[in-house]
Design a protein around this nucleic acid. Structure first.
Length: 472
RNA sequence: GGUCCCUUCGUCUAUCGGUUAGGACACGUGGUUUUCAUCCAUGAAAGAGGGGUUCGAUUCCCCUAGGGACCGCCA
């Protein structure tokens, strides 16, 4: 009887920087695949590089994954807590003759490398310590894995297809450092085995490592997991993403007000597709996700697309939830929105979010409500020949105590007719006066969101500023 | 340089050898709208090049070109 193997995937970032956008996609794919297969998704923190690993990055990665709502099962697995086990495996390998001690100094290796380079021979370690039989006790050493010298290995990659490689291109890689600490390829293999990982889904850049790790599995007689190497994400220019791009980490998107569900949807469709479908709910993405529809070629980031998807999600988020997100966003990245404005923003969200592609846009659109300021450069954009008209409007509204749309429309229409002007001629100065910006919602919406008193206040403030300017 | 991988509109992609090569974003035009935006309509836009295989190739094979990843006692 064959029992169907339980699918267990893992995301294994190293805490040496903020969560990368490519890492987020790797995590997403691992998570989706495991959920699609009714399996388990684990998080493993690969912190064996003590120099570069930092706790703040660990925290950052954890909180960003939570923000993305990519939830792992069980507790995060901390790789450094398992080094004893990794070392044991290395010693086993040593005993079995699958690994050997290498006494070459870094200087020797450098010279070796230089020599190869001069002779234009592709460099792999010369393996000269392979056959040292006696145990040299007074010299520091590393432990190297005895890689296969002959034959070929085929990696049956679930994304890349069959990848064939000559075994002699895989060098005798180090598994234990001089200080007896395990290296990545050893630790990753041992942990994948111990965590019973069934599918290793990771970036294309690890493809060569698969050949190394498979050999460790084989030497130990362990069952080899399945591998899926997904293409990397490139910058707009088609190059590898660098931190200078400003779009390389999840944080970069969070801080301009991209919603997690939008980023997830974007990342899902980047290099993967399901028919013509563009928008996927969480349930749909779990239901439809598969490995064989992942493309083989790297894809470029398209910022317009991210914003467009974000716009969709903003528009389909309920106002009370959107408000919460906006408040939270403003607290994290902007000026905090005072509590007594929350209700006002909420009731006006329908038009504030109308032209917004991000939380940042909504924030900027709403800013006139809670943080009003009429700057001189904006003042200068106001057509002063319309001053009398505006004063006129002011006194009419003050007298009638009415800023309803019907009332405003009525008096605007009359003015437009008698003065022979366009709506724009009075709309534009009014918008600047009321919001401090030449862009923004419709005048009627602005008026109703401000209320009668604030409406009049802002006009009065404007008049007093004008007076002051004239005196000066 | 070596090894491996990739190549459909500007971008993300669809196409189970037979399609007017489809969709989405972005872009152009027109319309709606009391600015901007939204919305609606509409347009332009692609199989890198060359050889095969085949009745037929974007699809399969080979070569060339271009792009990418890796080549650490980093992960």
């Amino acid at each position: 009887m064959n029992t169907i193997e339980k699918v267990i995937t893992r995301f294994a970032p190293s805490p040496t920087g903020n969560l990368h956008i490519g890492g987020a996609r790797t995590a997403l794919f691992n998570w989706l695949f495991s959920k699609n297969q009714k399996g388990i998704f684990l998080l493993r923190i690969e912190d064996t590089d003590i120099q570069r690993s930092k706790n703040e990055y660990y925290e950052q990665i954890i909180s960003t994954l939570k923000w993305l709502e990519i939830n792992w099962d069980e507790e995060p697995y901390i790789q450094s807590k398992n080094v004893e086990s990794h070392i044991n495996v290395a010693n086993n390998l040593l005993k079995n003759g699958c690994a050997y001690k290498c006494y070459c100094t870094e200087k020797e290796l450098e010279e070796e490398k230089k020599l190869y380079l001069e002779r234009k021979i592709p460099y792999t370690y010369s393996k000269k310590c392979r056959n040292i039989l006696e145990n040299i006790t007074n010299k520091p050493f590393v432990v190297r894995f005895k890689s296969k010298i002959e034959g070929k290995t085929i990696l049956k990659d679930l994304v890349q297809g069959d990848v064939e490689i000559n075994n002699n291109t895989i060098e005798d890689f180090v598994i234990l450092r001089k200080d007896n600490k395990p290296t990545y390829n050893l630790s990753a293999a041992v942990d994948d085995y111990q965590m019973k990982i069934s599918h290793v889904i990771r970036g294309d850049d690890h493809k060569i490592n698969a050949f190394k790790q498979i050999q460790v599995f084989e030497s130990m007689g362990w069952k080899i997991p399945k591998y899926a190497h997904i293409p990397l994400i490139h910058s707009k220019e088609g190059k590898k993403l660098s931190k200078r791009d400003d779009v390389s980490t999840v944080e970069d998107y969070k801080k301009i007000g991209i919603l997690p569900e939008a980023l997830r949807n974007y990342l899902l469709r980047l290099g993967w597709s399901y028919k013509d479908k563009e928008i996927f709910s969480e349930e749909e993405s779990i239901e439809f996700f598969n490995l064989n529809k992942i493309g083989k070629s790297p894809s470029k980031l398209d910022f317009d697309r991210i914003k467009s998807i974000n716009e969709f999600y903003i528009k389909s988020t309920k106002d009370e939830i959107l408000l919460e997100k906006l408040i939270h966003y403003s607290e994290l990245y902007k000026e905090k929105i005072p509590k007594h404005f929350h209700e006002n923003i909420k009731v006006n969200l329908s038009f504030l979010k109308n032209k917004s592609k991000s939380l940042e846009d909504i924030y900027n659109n709403s800013k006139y409500i809670f943080s009003y300021e009429l700057k001189d450069d904006q003042m200068q954009k106001i057509d002063k020949s319309k001053l009398t008209i505006i004063k006129n409007i002011y006194s009419l509204i003050k007298k009638e105590k009415d800023i309803s749309k019907d009332y405003l429309k009525n008096i605007f229409d009359k003015i437009i007719e008698t003065e022979k002007i366009n709506f724009k001629d009075l709309g534009q100065p009014l918008r600047i006066i009321l919001t401090g910006s030449e862009y923004g919602p419709a005048i009627y919406d602005i008026a109703s969101s401000l209320g009668l008193n604030e409406f009049l206040n802002r006009l009065e403030l404007f008049f007093s500023k004008i007076d002051k300017n004239i005196k000066n």
